[in-house]
Design a protein around this nucleic acid. Sequence first.
DNA 1: ATCCCGAAAT
DNA 2: ATTTCTGGAT
Length: 217
Amino acid sequence: MNFERLYDVLKATYGNLGKWWPGDKEEILITAVLTQSTNWKNVEYAMENIYKLTNKERLLDFLYKLPKDELANLIKPAGFFNIKAQRLKNLLEFFKKYNFDLDTISREENLRDKLLKIKGIGKETADSILLYVFEKPVFVVDAYTKRILNRIYNLKLEDYDEIQELFYKYYPKDVQLYQEFHGLIVEHAKRYCRKKPLCDSCFFHKCAYFTSPFLTY
DNA sequence: ATCCCGAAAT
DNA sequence: ATTTCTGGAT
């Protein structure tokens, strides 16, 4: 199967995921950190704890003012809570400089580089924020993306930027497309393309469009 | 390569 | 009981 058809096949399989990342912009900002190497259910538990003490309108300002150890206690179910509490503090400190005005931040030059300077915000988290919060046409690369490229196309790429360029080369820079594409990749990886792959029931295993000679699963 | 961490998924 | 989770820093 041609790489440029991957999106259509995934979409035909899993349907319309739309924006896929749940929550409003302020919420996505927080969950982008909480979900680092953590399953989504535990992120929901952490957000539930937070919303016992505040509401969506005051979310960012509330977390900014909350002492770090209290924040760590709230987000405990999300794991890595001490590190993530510090990372959220670092992130919120950056946003505080703009009075949490997302529209102003969105207009900043070299926003990706500015996000990457925040300790605890790596390429994947930065790009997730750019794509789902600021709605920039940035493709998010994650471990699932690497796994799927490896298993379906035998592309053993490790470099983040190189993988990102691959998607930019074959797909138009479109926010809706990238938002849904990343979601489709995650959903497919969670359901079938796991570390221990479920190839027997995987769609790609007997996909009529699949013609790669490098099928490894 | 290892640490950070709890909890779901298997 | 063990593995894995919408990573990043050291």
